[in-house]
Simulated assay, not measured.
Amino acid sequence: MATLAHSTTAYTNAPSANWLTSYKNFVARAEFNRFGWAVTALAIQGCLLSPTLLLVMAYFKGGDWQFLTSMLCFLLVLIPILSAMSVKYIFPAFATSFVIHLTVILITLL
């Protein structure tokens, strides 16, 4: 006689431990605190990165392209936040803006 409940352990796939799966799991868990992540990204962008770049530009005679890049990067972070997009759009926008800001600051300093 056949059993009524079958074990499905043979059919389950072990989750791969690559960075993309870890990132997707992190974003899924972070969606609950989207407001906190958005405020943190905006605070770092508006209170640390942009003023630091403007001060470096003022002391070391930065160009207009640096100011334009700074403002576009600020908008890159602000638009997903104000349009209430999910965290999976806020994180990459903030990471891109962070890298661009640090690159422009280092270019100006060197």
Score class of each variant (00 low, 15 high):
Cys73Ile: 00
Ile79Leu: 13
Trp19Ala: 13
Thr9Lys: 09
Gly36Asn: 13
Leu42Asn: 14
Ser22Pro: 00
Ser83Lys: 12
Thr40Val: 08
Leu55Thr: 14
Cys47Thr: 11
Met85Ser: 12
Thr69Asn: 05
Phe60Gln: 11
His101Ala: 10
Ser7Pro: 04
Thr21Cys: 05
Leu72Ala: 11
Ala93Val: 06
Ile105Thr: 09
Ala30Gly: 14
Leu102Asp: 07
Phe67Lys: 15
Val87Trp: 00
Leu4Phe: 05
Thr8Gln: 10
Phe32Arg: 05
Lys61Met: 07
Val77Gln: 01
Phe32Asp: 09
Ile44Phe: 07
Pro92Tyr: 00
Lys24Ser: 04
Asn18Cys: 03
Leu109Asn: 04
Ile105His: 03
Gly46Thr: 01
Thr96Ser: 01
Leu20Pro: 04
Thr3Asp: 08
Leu4His: 08
Lys61Thr: 07
Leu48Met: 13
Thr9Asp: 08
Ile79Val: 15
Ala2Val: 10
Tyr11Thr: 13
Ser97Cys: 10
Leu54Cys: 02
Leu106Asn: 14
Thr103Pro: 01
Glu31Gln: 15
Ala28Asp: 15
His6Val: 04
Leu109Asp: 02
Leu48Val: 15
Asp64Phe: 07
Leu55Asp: 08
Arg34Tyr: 02
Ala93Trp: 06
Ala5Asn: 02
Ala84Gly: 15
Thr103Val: 08
Leu53Ala: 12
Leu82Cys: 14
Arg34Gly: 00
Ser70Ala: 12
Phe98Ser: 15
Thr108Pro: 02
Lys61Asp: 06
Asn13Arg: 14
Leu68Cys: 07
Pro51Asn: 05
Ile100Gln: 04
Ala28Thr: 13
Val104Ala: 12
His101Met: 05
Met1Arg: 11
Lys61Cys: 01
Ser83Glu: 14
Gly63Arg: 05
Thr3Phe: 06
Trp19His: 07
Arg34Lys: 15
Ile107Val: 11
Gly46Glu: 00
Phe91Tyr: 14
Ile44Lys: 02
Phe91Cys: 05
Val39Cys: 08
Leu109Tyr: 06
Phe32Ala: 15
Tyr23Leu: 12
Val99Glu: 09
